[in-house]
Design a binder for these strands. Structure first.
Length: 579
RNA sequence: GCGCCCGUAGCUCAGCUGGAUAGAGCGUCUGCCUCCGGAGCAGAAGGCCGUGGGUUCGAAUCCCGCCGGGCGUACCA
């Protein structure tokens, strides 16, 4: 790595001041202003005080003491209050570019994860209705993080947890059954805490029209491995209606669950989300994992009984109060199921688990990590990323999202109206902990003026130039150091300098869990490409120039493709007509 | 009350873990298509980085106090 080389050189120069590696942390950064070189160190300012020297003088002496090959570092300058600025040789930058294209090069070198398995769980929405638009942010982030982790050499695994057990599912069954009975002409009281969404009415309507065969056929869409548990209830709705109430509700619930999961899965697919595993809570109950987790907590002395309930000693693990795991009536809490789920996740052999949660669950982190610790799992095994809330505005005012009241914007509607690429790009341009206002009206209007098109345009433009080159019979061939050496313009080198940052950008975005650094980066790349395109004519120039510029196009296209693939946005060869 | 997150251009947001003159998109204004795609380029206007202190060579960034907003604070999920 270049930076290591520079750091080494600086350290060598520092020895005569009695400063050694362990005394100082040398940081090199890219100056904002290009006239300050390619890389910059604040070393002299940091050391100035300690050595009782004026930073600028010190910088001068350090700079005089370093010795780099001219083929790598073109110049070392002192500037401002004492910055040491390095200017890289063009030949070296070209080397870095070529290394990035090399299948065994820089993008391979950043794969330092050792193929360790990491589980990334996101969305995990309750299976009580269609996915709403809040899940879109989680989907965009989670999926991108999975790809980023793969890009740095981990074996990342996307997972979706389905809460298909407990009270809410029963309520779902009750609600659907009530709708059905109403349609069948019976007078029924709608359950008090029932789900009022219109989708359940529609589902009930469908149910009236579907016979057993149709229901079974619908269920057969779930033959994938992760969905073995999703099956049609026996018979048809008329049969279920006649059953004793409890059993009847269970049948309706099972059907509703099946339908809703199919919607959720379809929506995920439309949004480009692929989950290796859909993990069902009901499985935890059936496999006795919940009881076993409880036993184990008991065994390690992390439980006690009070007022008839069983409590987990969360305060022993940093939480502010102890938490109930089994209620006085004997029912286990959602928390206990979650403990069992995460413990099983650990047993499945993941080196680390990353969960994406909403801000309303932040108070849940301590107890969850505490429970894992109590079970003997390393404290940092479970990493929770809080994705701040999205406030959706329509007609200038916030939409209250309530699934129970049936009032929310679906993720499908978002995809229909602004498009998956635009939606993903908007979410991925913001950092995870920013609360963001999403104005749907504006998004619809601006979907035609969105930054995502700016980036896609750059890609399409490159493809177009390459097509034109082919028409003129020019075959750019492989990118070589010689060809790129013919680049002379400022606009060309501005682009080059940005392109070679790719490996670092990927590493930093992955490690910081901040995918938005990717969108910032390609926006910059696209901008520099557009500038280059306007300032430097590519085709019809003198032969070496044309070739060099075509090669720069090829590298830019590669970088854009790599990053667009990471964020799950298409890299189109042509842009459609603007509406 | 306590805990977490946020406050940067008219609006929506970046600001790479403390650096040099605070950026982008949208909106507003001015130029640029007989020229590889104008979904583009060049430029202008627009900021006490909520506020008051502190830390140091240096703060939008770190610490403390206020002000304002969101979320949480269940034997709900």
């Amino acid at each position: 790595m270049l930076e290591d080389l520079l750091v080494k050189g600086l350290l060598a120069a520092l020895e005569k001041f009695g400063v050694f590696e362990e005394d100082v942390n040398i940081v090199l950064e890219k100056p904002r202003d290009r006239s300050h070189g390619d890389l910059s160190s604040n070393l002299a300012m940091v050391l100035g005080k300690r050595l009782g020297r004026k930073p600028r003088e010190l910088a001068g002496e350090i700079a005089a003491g370093v010795d780099f090959p001219k083929s790598i570092v073109e110049s070392v300058e002192i500037a401002g209050p004492g910055f040491i600025n390095f200017r890289l040789a063009h030949s070296y930058q070209v080397e870095l570019l070529l290394d990035m294209l090399d299948p065994a090069g820089a993008l391979e070198d950043i794969k330092t994860g050792g193929n360790k398995r990491i589980n990334v769980e996101f969305i995990s929405a309750n299976p009580t209705g269609p996915l709403n638009v809040v899940s879109a942010r989680a989907g965009a982030f989670g999926m991108t993080l999975v790809r980023l982790l793969d890009a740095i050499g981990y074996d990342a695994h996307a997972e979706y947890y389905v809460n298909d057990a407990g009270r809410q599912v029963k309520m779902l069954g009750l609600s659907l059954r009530a709708h059905y009975l109403q349609l069948a002409g019976e007078t029924v009281d709608f359950p008090e805490d029932g789900y009022h969404g219109r989708y359940l009415e529609i589902m009930a309507q469908e149910l009236m029209e579907q016979d057993t065969a149709a229901i079974v056929k619908a269920a057969s869409a779930f033959n994938d491995e992760s969905f073995q548990r999703v099956q049609a209830p026996p018979g048809n709705a008329e049969d279920w209606r006649k059953l004793p109430e409890d059993e009847s509700v269970r049948h309706f619930a099972k059907f509703a669950l099946m339908k809703i999961l199919s919607w959720q899965r379809d929506t995920c697919r439309r949004f480009g989300l692929r989950f290796e595993t859909w993990y069902f809570e009901s499985e935890l109950h059936e496999s006795k994992r919940i009881e076993r987790a409880l036993d184990r907590l008991e065994k390690v002395g992390a439980l006690y009984t009070e007022e008839g309930a069983t409590w987990f000693r969360a305060t022993d693990f940093g939480d502010e109060k102890d938490r109930v795991v089994v209620r006085a009536e004997g029912l286990s809490t959602y928390f206990l199921a979650d403990i069992a789920y995460h413990y099983h996740k650990f047993q499945r052999g993941f080196e680390r688990a990353i969960d994406f949660w909403g801000p309303d669950h932040h108070g849940y982190i301590q107890r969850m990590q505490g429970a894992m610790e109590a079970l003997g799992v390393p404290r940092d095994w479970l990493e929770v990323q809080i994705l701040q809330q999205v406030t959706f505005l329509e007609g200038g005012r916030p939409i209250k999202m309530s699934k129970r009241a049936g009032q929310f914007v679906t993720m499908d509607a978002l995809i229909d109206e602004v498009g998956a690429d635009v939606a993903k790009y908007i979410f991925l341009s913001r950092k995870p902990n920013s609360h963001l206002d999403f104005d749907l009206d504006l998004a619809k209007e601006q979907s035609n003026e969105n930054p995502v098109f700016y980036v896609q345009m750059a890609h399409a433009r490159i493809c177009s130039v390459l097509r034109n080159a082919a028409v003129e019979g020019i075959d750019p061939g492989d990118v070589t150091a010689d060809s790129l050496g013919n680049l002379t313009e400022e606009a060309e080198w501005n682009l080059v300098r940005e392109l070679i940052r790719l490996p670092q950008v990927i590493v930093s975005a992955a490690n910081a869990r901040e995918p938005h650094r990717l969108t910032g980066y390609i926006h910059e790349v696209a901008g520099l490409y557009h500038q280059f395109y306007h300032q430097c004519h590519i085709l019809g120039e003198e032969k070496d120039t044309t070739l060099a510029r075509l090669h720069l196009c090829l590298v830019t296209r590669h970088v854009l493709r790599v990053v667009l693939a990471l964020i799950g946005v298409e890299a189109p060869e042509k842009m459609g007509e603007k509406v």
